[in-house]
């Protein structure tokens, strides 16, 4: 919408555009599909309860192969401008951000759009998707790899599955305890007061006219 049409929403700041929100929820859907199909594959006693095993395997395989797509699709192309900017924000850290992370949030920081914890979460998830995809492919097409590698891939796939599950549980807990922040993954916007409190540097860069007023 244009500036002229939306005087009310100009008091609210766009945090995630449509493309990013859809990518987030597609990613979440695939993640839960993977997690719920992993449980019976991993803990034998659960399986056979709901679906036949080979169907569960197929769902797990295809969800896994599709997992990188929401991020990639939302990042490429003319619709990916906001996503690309956020990926850049997440990758590049200032010295203050690094210090903030090292001191576990005790140093002063004028926060970017994402605080260093959120950035680290995003980087970890991105890297883990890559590692899970590679090791998962090794387990699916195991014939091309020597047996010790297959065992190693099983080890890594298991280890990262645990790690990701902890991180995602943490992500959900943080979301549920920060309702204003959570709302922006549904409707895209945060209030100016939220942005002043949690992302002052971003707000200053995004809407210099507002902050200077």
């Amino acid at each position: 919408m244009s500036i002229a049409q939306a005087p009310a929403t100009s008091l609210r700041v766009l945090r995630f555009d449509r493309v990013q929100r859809d990518a987030h929820w597609a990613n979440a859907l695939l993640f839960f599909s993977l997690m719920f199909t992993a449980i019976p594959l991993y803990f034998g006693s659960f399986f056979g309860i709901v679906l036949p095993r080979h169907l569960i395997e197929m769902i797990h395989l295809w969800s896994g192969l599709a997992l990188p797509l929401p991020i990639i699709i939302s990042w490429i192309g003319p619709w990916g401008k906001a996503m690309r900017r956020d990926v850049r924000r997440i990758n590049y850290w200032t010295r203050e951000e690094i210090r903030w992370m090292r001191t576990l949030g005790r140093s002063r920081l004028e926060a970017d759009k994402f605080n260093p914890g959120q950035k680290l979460n995003a980087i970890f998830v991105g890297a883990s998707i890559f590692v899970m995809l590679v090791t998962g492919a090794m387990l699916q097409w195991f014939r091309f790899f020597p047996v010790p590698w297959r065992s190693g891939a099983t080890f890594v796939h298991d280890l990262f599955a645990y790690a990701i599950s902890f991180v995602v549980v943490g992500h959900i807990v943080m979301a549920l305890t920060h309702r204003d922040t959570l709302r922006s993954i549904f409707n895209g916007r945060v209030s100016r007061s939220w942005a002043e409190r949690h992302a002052a540097r971003w707000l200053r860069e995004e809407q210099p006219d507002h902050t200077e007023r």
């Binding site: 990926v87 990758n91 590049y92 980087i123 890297a127 590698w149 890594v156």
Partner: peptide, 24 residues
């Protein structure tokens, strides 16, 4: 800025590769 994203990504990927090679 420091490209922390790339460092952490490569670090985790390397960890994964080491795990595949030596995890057994």
């Amino acid at each position: 800025g420091v490209n922390v994203g790339r460092r952490v990504f490569l670090g985790l990927a390397a960890l994964g590769a080491l795990g595949v090679a030596f995890g057994n």
